[in-house]
Design a protein around this nucleic acid. Sequence first.
DNA 1: CTGAATCCTACTGGATACTG
DNA 2: CAGTATCCAGTAGGATTCAG
Lengths: 135, 135
Amino acid sequence: MATTTAAQRREQARIEYDAFLKSCPTNQLLDRISDKWVSLVVSALAPGPLRYSDLGRKIAGVSPKMLTQTLRSLERDGLLTRTVTPSVPVRVDYELTALGQNLALLLTAVKTWAETHFDEVHRSRERYDAETPEG
Amino acid sequence: MATTTAAQRREQARIEYDAFLKSCPTNQLLDRISDKWVSLVVSALAPGPLRYSDLGRKIAGVSPKMLTQTLRSLERDGLLTRTVTPSVPVRVDYELTALGQNLALLLTAVKTWAETHFDEVHRSRERYDAETPEG
DNA sequence: CTGAATCCTACTGGATACTG
DNA sequence: CAGTATCCAGTAGGATTCAG
């Protein structure tokens, strides 16, 4: 039959979606910078350069794995620079590039939005939860 | 002994981190709106209200589960409204609230940033990958 | 049409230990 | 100090199916 199953149609949609992503790779980048750790690291570095362990302390809940991973990703994207000072012990500084600082401004704006409207959102949540018959 | 093991110190850090999150719940909200699907849904609704299936088509790669989940979350946060028209079949419209539109502006700015600087990031990635001894 | 429920996989990301 | 490597749990999220 001319049966296009739901699965086939869905897969087709995914193929088109992949093509869409290729033709519009902006979404990949958007997804990347929408990452939790990216926001935190960029925010942490916004005031000025920091060392690896400084970042780890400033962000607190982060594991070394995620910290390194995020830093590498941001370095690869040209959002920050990694400077190794071959002293003993080694010292590594991370600093936002102009591009990174540019992005930091936007993320700061989003953060400010969250601070400004948090109580509003919070009240909305309580209202919603109260109305919901917890079922 | 006064032995604070690494585990203890780490756990202590997590406790403090939790307290930090409670005292500064903005981060939770920031994390929430940094979600991939949140960005996509808010962007999709920015031009105007849409029905459930319209959203599913416009966002393409999304599964009904994630779409519903994201919409519920945004509704709970007061970022959009859900309007049910009890016709047959049922019709449900989603529309950004003023708060949601406000956020949409910021996310649009971030999206614009991504579009503007994508080639720069892309070149940085190629440079990075070329320098990296693929090890 | 608009979801809700279930199942299941794959990836995220934390803990831990080890290296230069 | 600044990572790297390994292991492993939790969960995000896709596929599928069913209901109102």
